[in-house]
Each structure stands twice: as structure tokens, then as C-alpha cells.
Design a protein around this nucleic acid. Structure first.
Length: 558
DNA sequence: GCAAGGTC
């Protein structure tokens, strides 16, 4: 018997949960890759469009794992248990193992072990109900994605790269992919919004009031018309008292943060540290490999069977000890669960003040904020007054009790203004009245955090891959970073314009939605994988023909 | 030399 898992941690969990411990073999993700046969590798002699009809084959990507596994499979006695992750990429990995097994021996008896967490009970339960076969809907769904991305990526990348070179543009590589190009498109559309923005002038009256000894500013509504603004100003500029129309205030809670998943970690840390998500992810993986934090790739933001006492005891020997109220824990849960990994939490102290230390500290502080802190208590207020018959107002908020902001201060609100309570009908001395000329402002450029949120919202990439795309488009020369925000390059801009002139489906998030939609149809058996690939690749081969014709007629305008 | 998806 042999149990094959997708990664080491699962192999260890299975050996511990099942007795007697079965023999396990841990993969490191995929072992095989789809690729074109070698004769298609010559970019000069093969017309890229031939790749739409070209066969694809499985090639070995990790020879060491491949050889070891094949050796073990040759000597296998009893069934092969496929215990990869319970998702469609896991199903494809199981299929890869099955192919290896079939090439290593005549007869393969296999079972699928399916579990949604590595908790002992769950694994034991899964062990008693091994399934007789793979979920082929999932296998073909993942296979579809893999082949579609390969064929479209290769054809468009080669066409763009070769055309540019033919026109003596010195680009090394002009790549196209169903995730990287929509990522660039978000930066492009924001750039266009900024460039097409026409600032509009408007006016506001500002009055400074003395509210029981505290200076408070109030503002009129924006006024578009200049002469109207001036006449209102003339009316109120010498008014000595404002009358309170209403004053409202109320307490409210700012909830402590949810347990940390990968998406939220990258969105917040790119903001806090100003370094790329890709870099943060690789540092987080080092922290994980060295045992300082739990597994950093997770979509779970709820706690299930978690020993908080152990973590809090560990933290009470660190500089964070003053925030750890021993014995008190009241974690707040989110609703997401990937059924494989817990939220990210600190495992042992990492106390250096380098980039890794800042990441560890963020994870540890967010953990304490979530598990052993209180919600923050704030008060918000709104003051409405009138000067003669001109209505003016302002609103604000301030903190009453810091709560979790003490340990997790990164996003603590600033610009807090306190104000004494007043009653309707009260008169407030006016210290000054001003007429202000203002201009509407364009939207700001996207930060990496904004970009990652957009990718998540639009279903582009997965939680494990999303952070790669912002870095990838910079590496390709399509965009750069300026003061922590993304700015499109001339090359990136021209590339998007070229593709968009041919068809929006080559650049917008629709590109990825199209893929996901057909993946769903394959999973449900509405289309066979062959029909689906035939259909989807035909759509993209027609678009390819249009792009090629456009490039030829325009002599490539990149 | 192309993609996006796993995992280290």
C-alpha cells in the first residue's frame, strides 16, 4: 500500500492519524506539466497559429520526485491511495500520479482518499470511506484550464514577440496570459481615468466656530457658480453667531480584525511595508519553513479546533506580552474555510527587526488583536448650524477606548476631532468666515493592495498565485512602481490599446471569466473536455486571426 | 524562450 499526498504536511498528518501508519509519499505539487512536443519549440519555423491545432503531451517537471515515485510504485504491494488535496488541481495531480503508476506497472489498483482537513478525526473517517475512483469532472476541468492557458499563452506571446522583433523593436518578450493581461488592464483603465479627468472648480464657505472653547470648522455644500458663492459669502462674512440646527452623536464599535488569510495578509502588508506581494509571500514561506509561523497559503479565516492557550503562552515571552491578557481569549471568526489549513498565526518568536521580523510582528499582532483583544470604542458626531439662512455642517469621530488598536495600530484612524456636546438653538460664536476655491481631484493610482483586491474580486488568479501578477507585469516592462503605486509604461499602454482595438475579450477581466465559465461546464459534464477545448480555442483562434491581420495592416504600432 | 497552477 502507498499513500501519495500533495505536500509534506499532509503526509505527516496521515502517518500520525492512521494506525498502523501506512507508507506515504509526499509530492511537492504537480509532477507533470502539459507542453507541446519538441518539434513545436522552434519559434522561427513554426507559425504560432499552428499551436492551436498542435498536440500536447505530459512532460516531467520535477525529475527527482518523478524518479523516486516511480521506483516506489514499481515495488508497490497493495492499493495506491491518492490523497492529494480535495480540489480540482488536487484531482489533476492525482491523475498525474495515476499515469506514472500505469507506466510503472501492468495493473494498478487505486483508491481516492478525500478529506477536507488534516484533523485526526477527519482523516480517520476518510480512511474508512476511500472512494473507488477519481472525480473525472474535476480532472477534466483542471485539464481544460491547463491546456487553454498553455495554448493561448504560447500563441499570443509568440505572435506579439515575433511581430515586434520583425519591426525591429528590441523587446525580449511580449507575453500574453489570461491573468497577467487583465492585471495590466486595471492599471491601464485607471491611468485613462486620471488622464481624461477634467478638474472642476467649485466653492465652499468655511466658518470657524468656538464650540465651548474648542475651534470647530463647518462647511457649506459645494457651490458651482462663482457669483452665487460670492453673494452667499457677502451675506454671512460678518455674522457673529451661528445657530445650532442639530447635534447628533453616538458610540460605535470598530470590530477587531478577523483571523488572517493569505489575501488579507498580502493586501495589508503591501500597504504597511511598501514591498511587493511576491516578495512578502517568499519571506512568509521562509518564516513557515523555519517554523516561525503556520502555513501562509490559506483561505480560511475561522478557527477550528485551535489551541489558543499554547500560542498566547508563547507570545507572553515576547515584547507583545503586555498585550496578552493571560487566560482571556475570545476570538472573532470570519466565514471562510478552505477545509485544509487554519488562518495564519505565529508559532514561535522571531524577534529580529528585518523585513521578516516586520511580517512576523504583523501576523502576531493581528493574532493577538483577533484572539485576546477588545473591539475599539469610538464616538461619531454631526453638527449642523446655520449662519443667517446658510446651512453649514461637519462630522467627525474620535476614539474613546483603543481596544485592539493598542496591539494592532497599523490602520488606526487619524484626523480625530473631539467636540463638546451642544443643543439645537444654541448660539456659537463665529471666529472667521472664508470663501474657498477648490478643484475636484482625479482618482489616485492603484497601490499593490488595491490591485490585489481587484484581482480577488474579479476572480483572477488563485489565493496562491494572485501575488505573482503585479510583479510579473513589472518584470515584463508593462508597468512600474512610483511611490508605492502602479504606473503603466508606454509599452504596457500600447500593448493594451493594440489588443483592445482588436477585441476587449483579449484584455478585460472577461478573458478570465470566459475560462472559468467553461471550466464550470466541463465539471458538470455539459461539455466534454474535448468539446470545451475545441470551442474555447476556436474563439481565441478567431481573435488571433484578427489580431494578426491588425498587426499586419498597422505595421505593428507598439 | 510562451501560461497558470501546484508547493519549498
Amino acid at each position: 500500500m502507498l499513500v501519495v499526498t500533495e505536500k509534506g504536511s499532509v503526509a505527516i498528518a496521515i502517518s500520525k492519524a492512521i494506525s498502523p501508519s501506512p507508507k506515504t509519499f509526499a509530492l511537492k505539487g504537480h509532477i507533470l506539466d502539459l507542453d507541446f512536443p519538441e518539434e513545436y519549440n522552434n519559434w522561427r519555423t513554426i507559425d504560432p497559429k499552428e499551436l492551436f491545432k498542435a498536440p500536447v503531451k505530459w512532460v516531467v517537471r520535477d525529475f527527482k520526485t518523478y524518479r523516486n515515485l516511480k521506483e516506489v510504485l514499481k515495488n508497490l504491494n497493495g492499493p495506491l491511495i491518492l490523497a492529494t488535496d480535495n480540489d480540482y488541481e488536487g484531482e489533476l495531480i492525482a491523475y498525474e500520479v495515476l499515469q506514472l503508476a500505469k507506466s510503472a506497472r501492468n495493473q494498478v489498483k487505486y483508491m481516492r482518499m478525500r478529506f477536507n482537513s488534516t484533523a485526526t478525526n477527519e482523516l480517520r473517517d476518510a480512511w474508512t470511506r476511500l472512494e473507488p475512483d477519481l472525480n473525472w469532472g474535476w480532472v477534466w476541468k483542471a485539464y481544460f484550464r491547463s491546456k487553454f492557458d498553455l495554448v493561448t499563452g504560447a500563441t499570443y506571446t509568440r505572435l506579439l514577440t515575433l511581430s515586434a522583433r520583425k519591426n525591429r523593436y528590441p523587446y525580449k518578450l511580449l507575453s500574453w496570459g489570461s491573468c497577467q493581461i487583465p492585471t495590466l488592464w486595471f492599471i491601464y483603465t485607471r491611468e485613462m481615468e486620471i488622464r481624461n479627468f477634467k478638474p472642476e472648480t467649485y466653492y465652499e464657505l468655511k466658518a470657524i466656530l468656538n464650540v465651548k472653547g474648542v475651534e470647530v470648522e463647518v462647511f457649506s455644500k459645494p457651490i458651482k457658480d462663482r457669483s452665487q458663492a460670492i453673494s452667499l459669502y457677502e451675506k454671512v462674512k460678518d455674522v457673529k453667531e451661528a445657530t445650532v440646527s442639530s447635534f447628533e452623536s453616538e458610540f460605535f464599535s470598530e470590530h477587531r480584525p478577523l483571523p488572517t488569510d493569505t489575501d488579507v495578509m498580502l493586501q495589508e502588508l503591501t500597504k504597511i511595508l511598501g514591498i511587493s506581494g511576491a516578495k512578502i509571500m517568499s519571506l512568509a514561506e521562509e518564516l513557515y519553513a523555519d517554523g516561525f509561523i503556520s502555513y501562509p497559503r490559506t483561505q480560511t479565516n475561522m478557527w477550528i479546533r485551535m489551541n489558543h492557550k499554547y500560542v498566547l503562552d508563547m507570545l507572553s515571552n515576547t515584547p507583545l506580552s503586555k498585550y496578552v491578557r493571560s487566560g482571556v481569549f475570545q476570538p472573532k471568526n470570519g466565514r471562510k474555510n478552505d477545509n485544509a489549513h487554519p488562518p495564519i498565526y505565529p508559532v514561535k518568536p522571531y524577534l529580529y527587526d528585518d523585513a521578516k521580523g516586520k511580517i512576523w510582528s504583523y501576523i502576531a499582532r493581528r493574532y493577538v488583536a483577533n484572539v485576546a483583544s477588545k473591539d475599539a470604542l469610538l464616538k461619531r458626531w454631526r453638527l449642523d448650524v446655520h449662519l443667517k439662512d446658510v446651512a453649514m455642517n461637519n462630522m467627525g469621530r474620535y476614539i474613546i477606548d483603543d481596544g485592539f488598536y493598542e496591539v494592532f495600530p497599523y490602520f488606526k484612524p487619524k484626523d480625530l476631532s473631539q467636540i463638546p456636546e451642544v443643543k439645537p438653538g444654541e448660539f456659537l460664536p463665529v471666529l472667521k468666515v472664508e470663501l474657498m476655491e477648490k478643484k475636484t481631484k482625479p482618482p489616485s493610482r492603484l497601490t499593490e493592495s488595491d490591485l490585489l483586491k481587484l484581482l480577488e474580486k474579479n476572480g483572477i488568479g488563485t489565493d496562491a498565485t494572485r501575488h505573482e501578477y503585479p510583479s510579473k507585469i513589472i518584470a515584463r516592462g508593462y508597468a512600474g512602481k512610483k511611490r508605492k503605486t502602479f504606473i503603466i509604461t508606454q509599452l504596457g499602454e500600447r500593448l493594451i490599446q493594440l489588443l483592445e482595438n482588436v477585441n476587449g475579450q483579449l484584455v478585460t477581466p472577461e478573458t478570465r471569466r470566459f475560462v472559468e465559465q467553461i471550466m464550470g461546464e466541463v465539471e458538470l459534464g455539459k461539455r466534454t473536455v474535448d468539446e470545451a477545448l475545441n470551442y474555447a480555442l476556436n474563439v481565441y483562434s478567431d481573435l488571433y486571426a484578427k489580431l494578426e491581420a491588425y498587426i499586419r495592416s498597422a505595421k505593428l504600432i507598439l
